[in-house]
Design a protein around this nucleic acid. Sequence first.
DNA 1: CCCCAGAGTGAATCGACTA
DNA 2: ATAGTCGATTCACTCTGGG
Lengths: 378, 378
Amino acid sequence: MTAMVRVGANTRPAKAKLAPLAGLPLGTIIQDDCVAAMARLPEASIDMIFADPPYNLQLGGDLFRPEGGRVDAVDDDWDKFDTFASYDSFTRAWLKEARRILKPNGTLWVIGSYHNIFRVGAALQDEGYWILNDIVWRKSNPMPNFRGTRFTNAHETMIWASRSEDSRYTFNYRAMKAMNDELQMRSDWLLPICSGSERAKVDGSKAHPTQKPESLLYRVLLACTNPGDVVLDPFFGTGTTGAVARRLGREWIGIERETRYVKVARGRIDATLPLDESAMKTMASKRAQPRVPFGALIETGMIEPGAVLTDAKRRYRARVRADASVEMGEKQGSIHQVGAAAQSAPSCNGWTFWHVEQAEALVALDELRQKYLLLTGE
Amino acid sequence: MTAMVRVGANTRPAKAKLAPLAGLPLGTIIQDDCVAAMARLPEASIDMIFADPPYNLQLGGDLFRPEGGRVDAVDDDWDKFDTFASYDSFTRAWLKEARRILKPNGTLWVIGSYHNIFRVGAALQDEGYWILNDIVWRKSNPMPNFRGTRFTNAHETMIWASRSEDSRYTFNYRAMKAMNDELQMRSDWLLPICSGSERAKVDGSKAHPTQKPESLLYRVLLACTNPGDVVLDPFFGTGTTGAVARRLGREWIGIERETRYVKVARGRIDATLPLDESAMKTMASKRAQPRVPFGALIETGMIEPGAVLTDAKRRYRARVRADASVEMGEKQGSIHQVGAAAQSAPSCNGWTFWHVEQAEALVALDELRQKYLLLTGE
DNA sequence: CCCCAGAGTGAATCGACTA
DNA sequence: ATAGTCGATTCACTCTGGG
């Protein structure tokens, strides 16, 4: 079944169309399969496509938290594919239609994780898209790895690509630089996940398992579209793309198959007000406070494994190991833990307590940390 | 031409071998094409492969094409496809050989940028590797985007994959946590690029265009190998992998086609000194430590039968029995089972949940277990 | 009103060993 | 092969309720 729903001030009655659409259904959620829906849109009509396709997670059994709770995993039907091959053909199908409806200078953004992003990236190169950047969304508050079996999966990857190699795409260089304290915007973005009041809820529980934060879309749309541009999201979900597009004065079209998501998205976008111009100017990003783990000093060679640490009065001595833990007699642990043990104190700031001998003088670890911060520029 | 160069203390004369190698040529740079060289290594013999394959697809058309079949480019699209296709077949060829020589529990690391990493990632999934993490190397000092047309390309991507889904791979969880101030190591790593004195030079200009920093390899090898493991690098370049492997007490094999890089690598590794053993020690993963049954603490008198266990907040009390089972009201069983029952939780780590009163303070069972490990000298 | 403790939660490919 | 048992594991942030 196909239905269109227009939201916002200028609401039109929904109507079903199976023939190609004459004009663009701006500000509309098309409830249909994304390939079928895109097939009915005119070619070369869209400025940007933002796509958050299913990730093909292939999860095993339940995962429990250390304290006993069960992780609420993504186990929806829409994320199930039999094989890589079937995921690939699904991917190629939507990428092909997406490319047809993009304007010659249009761009595509896709977001994914290691489960799917390599397949998506290879497929879009094969289809003729031209990759401009891959962008890493670093989550400031990711879910930990409860079993201690891997690195904490703390990021997702976005690919920004133009329709073809010779596209003259939009990139608001100055706006990005202004957002980043007059430094060029880098390819790694630190942003919190979507939670709190921003997270759409139905009957108290999350409306969609993978809702993206508005801050992410905010940066994408501000960087790569102009006011009035048409942004299409073929996996609309709860409509983050539409909400941010409306807020930033961009036109939008959403495609979403599931009724329950369409409902949420419609209500949400209706409640979103466009920014007035002055407000738009004052939005600035905070720079994250850098944290230096002691291990960084070892990796970069500022301290050698085997080096001896001592306190300011040279009363205690500890030895640095390859993994940045330190040992003092039987005691081993972090610089803070061992420092505390040395003084039989409940806690200790290892950065200021411990020193290393350099050029016949004692240098506090904290001093080396400052040097590291200067080196890395954070 | 094929030549082997062994570096370090036990230097052997270089010799050409075309038949499969009987033993592993440890500490050796094999000067040859990487697929041919790997083909002569015995299967299931390598613990880890670290690969930094060429990125540049522009050169690809000719470089990666299999024997013969040089086809003239007719149009751009076709040429592009041809370039990707030949890069893909090159990629599949080396991934296949790499997988053959990996031990069943071996792992692969590959590093790349958006130009090639999506193709490599998809190919390795197709070949049967199982992705464990994708890791983002965030460069603290990347090259700026001079033209202001894109985001500053400030990262590269690494893929960590096991040989197959059921591999029981090495991950030194505790060492990584220790390196990161007792927080789980995340999938985004901030490290400076290779510059200054670390950068290999020939006649004053850089010896290799894409030399990787030692800090990157340091973390990779510390995290995913054990001392004595065999690490192979099929695109050895100036030998960063070999240098760090030697420093960390891992065995290594390099494969490199270009004479000029082999020379630099050899001199560099010869000049690298291994860390002494005590400095190399890392926090052993609890999982890797010998298992201490709770009963051992009773047998050695560290806990008396009849002793009372309580949680950190003294809300629950359980009693230790002579056979190391515990009872709490009607409930009885292991420290884990009773701990779970106490909290009505599906599971519980009894070692960290239960405490005993010692010298007017609560001591976690886990602490007693550590003491036991030291006592028994394990 | 504020403050603090405690509970809840997020795209997750999240054991090992023995019978 | 498979089932059962034993064992080991979490970070940042938000919200709620009690004082």
